[in-house]
Write a protein that binds this DNA or RNA. Structure first.
Lengths: 211, 211
DNA sequence: TACAAGTTAGTAAGCACTTACTTACATGGA
DNA sequence: TCCATGTAAGTAAGTGCTTACTAACTTGTA
């Protein structure tokens, strides 16, 4: 439970310890929520006295806030459209939606803690979810609905409110990731690779399931 | 804050009080989670002393367990296919998916607390979410994927793993409901009626967005 | 008047957070 | 090369408050 990986009889630099506390806190908040996680438990898992937590973070709320910054800087919030720039240029519709989906699914899988953290914060009306959705999600909405709008004008897509299409598509991905992290982690109901899921989601969105 | 609706200077019958406590607890657990809700707060909102809560429920965990029973019996778990039986018989594909979607969206809207409660319990690894998903959700998966399978055999639907299709469709609905309850309750990003959302989701699933 | 509904006034344990202190270590002048 | 010194890492032992939960009592009503 304590001091899990390596023995550190010696002390750590402040910055290293800070990050260590942050990462333990992320794991615990993700697992048990904000109010379900005690500062004592965090300190215990880090292998340090509780006072150290408060040396690095003014209070528990500030620790939470700093997790947001940390996550926002280190993870997930780089440009989500960089990897599909070629498909965008080529107006390769399947490539665009497949790329977006695959990207998202892989990301979610790598960082399940982040999904849980986001959900916890959304349920507890914390800032993280607001920040995340206002900056990140609405950007995706704007971008994708812009793309759809353009393709509608070019006569390639049918005339339907682009934001509903985005909601449908984002829903496929998020729900799939949430199923795999929250409700069906053993994937009893459905077990598919990220590639297959992304491919089918993109196909369904573009062509539907009717012959 | 206290005693919000009607004056009750007189006392209540045990059973009525029990249900009142249950319903207040549901609202608070939904809002702030299990560990974020105190028994004191519950008693306060009911307008009764904290000891009364423990007269009716042996402890906080038992209160939570009884909420599950209460919700499972009273709400949400009636047959979700009853209302689309005619469309099913007529093999009206749009009708089937539109009906399912509209049904789900309306249900979620009526009972936002239930969504929040489910999410909280999923995140906290409580029993409610397991029970619900094993009994209710997997039933929907079986049923819908059965329908899709049948229509594939009849040569009407393309050949794609039915459960992926169900995941995509369920994802549209759940994510839409979650957006409206959790992340964008003012519907800034997207504001549509349940009917329109259901119609577009069904159309997208069946026909896609390409011309 | 019997008995259930209700309260008051607790308890021990747990919570976030603080205080007052001790230790390890890098550094620079002798 | 030594070791005094400043500083940052670290701790033990609290603080006052909140928590879930209880016991012993009072009150309303059928």
């Amino acid at each position: 439970m304590v001091n899990n990986t390596q023995q550190m009889a010696t002390r750590m630099s402040g910055e290293k310890r800070r990050i260590q506390i942050l990462e333990v806190a992320i794991r615990l908040f993700a697992k048990q929520g904000f109010s379900g996680t005690t500062t004592k438990k965090i300190a215990e898992e880090v292998g340090v006295s509780e006072a150290m937590v408060f040396k690095h973070f003014a209070n528990k709320d500030k620790l939470y806030a700093d997790i947001i910054d940390y996550k926002a800087c280190n993870h997930g919030l780089e440009d989500p459209f960089a990897e599909i720039s070629e498909e965008l240029k080529a107006k390769d519709d399947f490539g665009v939606f497949y790329g977006m989906a695959l990207n998202a699914l892989r990301h979610h899988e790598e960082d399940k803690d982040f999904i849980r953290l986001l959900l916890h914060s959304a349920l507890e009306n914390h800032e993280l979810s607001k920040t995340f959705f206002e900056s990140y999600v609405s950007e995706i909405y704007d971008f994708l609905s812009g793309y759809i709008n353009q393709r509608q004008k070019e006569g390639v897509f049918i005339d339907v409110e682009p934001k509903i299409v985005v909601r449908a598509f984002v829903g496929m991905m998020i729900h799939h990731s949430m199923s795999n992290t929250l409700w069906d982690p053993e994937q009893k109901i459905l077990k598919v690779s990220d590639e297959q899921a992304a491919r089918e989601f993109a196909n369904i969105l573009l062509d539907g399931i009717k012959k």
